[in-house]
Amino acid sequence: MRSTLYLLFLSLLWGSSFLWTKQLLNYFQPTTIVFLRCLFGMIALLPFLLFSKVKLDLKVQPKFLLVVALAAAIPWNFMGFALQGIDSGLSGILNATTPLFAVLFSIVLLKIKPLRNQIFSLLIGFIAVVILMFFSGQAIGSQFSIAHALLMFGVTSCYALNSIFVNKYYTTVPPLHLSFWTLAIAIMINGPISLLMEPKAMLTVGTPSVFLSLLVLGSLSSGLGYVIFYVINSASGPIFAVMVTFIVPFVSILLGVIFLNEPLHIGIAIGLPLIVTSLFLMNFHSIKFRKVVESAPGKFDDDFS
């Protein structure tokens, strides 16, 4: 029950990130938003780092910094620019294609042979994206630019590559430390650029609407969000934790409709269920395996102990 509540709370935080980013675009350029978001996230993360039993390793290789840059520093800039031309609800749906890109890159880069359900998942996901793109461009009251929508695939590609490289090379790095370096490298990259582009940006941070947006987007979503995700992953396993991917698009659409007056159109009605179906197929073999293990817990003890 506790893990379910954590999952719903995390879905609300991550699903609302598109709304808060959209709101902050009224005040800042995307690079400044990334810098402030990560700065607020780092402040929230510091207490966990201070009380962590595992000492933070400050000697890291450039390759590692590039990998963690793919988690925030680069994709969150793409997201900011993308949201200048598309609805937040659509961006939330397109963001859910990350697992599809992870499988695609695994096939291309790692030469992993895909399962049948993953092939069907990629096909359905592709059809869903085409439908979403087409109807979003036709819908009355919808903010849509094909170039900005394509930027979201830059976001999901970065997330997918980060996931692949972390799982391949950095599984021994504690999740809390991955979170620290993800935020730290984003601050180091985007901070100087932000100060050059918008030197007076910090003077706006105290504005109530700006501070609230950064508090949720930075401290809660980007800082505590990682911690909550790893708590869920530890308590209930990765298959349960990945369910957040299914819920986030619904949250982003709902918030966009309520707070930004974004339209609900037929593309969303058709495309979103297809995306959810695609994600389910993507994880079908893992869900099926989990059910087998739970029904006969002693059967796999020797293999996985």
Rank of each mutant, 00 (worst) to 15 (best):
L264K: 04
L65F: 11
S219M: 09
K291G: 00
G218V: 05
T172V: 04
F18A: 06
T98L: 07
F78W: 00
N167K: 14
F105E: 06
F300T: 15
A296L: 10
L203G: 02
L122N: 01
L203R: 06
G41P: 12
Y6R: 12
T32I: 02
S121H: 07
T277R: 00
V276T: 13
V251E: 08
L123Y: 07
I270T: 12
V155P: 08
V155W: 03
Q84N: 11
F259I: 04
A269Y: 02
I146Y: 13
V34F: 06
S252M: 11
H177P: 01
V205P: 02
W76T: 09
G267F: 12
F9G: 13
F229G: 01
D87N: 15
A184N: 10
L220W: 05
A149M: 09
F289G: 01
K22D: 10
C38D: 03
F48Y: 08
F28H: 01
S278N: 04
T245F: 00
N162Y: 15
D302H: 13
G15L: 06
G223W: 04
T277V: 15
L104E: 08
K200M: 13
L264R: 06
Q23A: 10
L203A: 11
Y6N: 14
P192M: 06
T31Y: 08
L45M: 03
S163I: 10
H265P: 09
Y226G: 12
P174Y: 04
S52C: 01
T21W: 01
K113G: 00
V227F: 09
L214V: 03
L100V: 12
F81V: 15
L36Y: 14
H148E: 08
F78P: 00
L274D: 11
N261K: 14
A269S: 11
I185A: 04
L24A: 04
C158P: 12
A269V: 14
M197N: 13
S121K: 08
L212W: 15
H148W: 07
S163W: 05
G267T: 13
G154R: 05
F9D: 02
G191C: 07
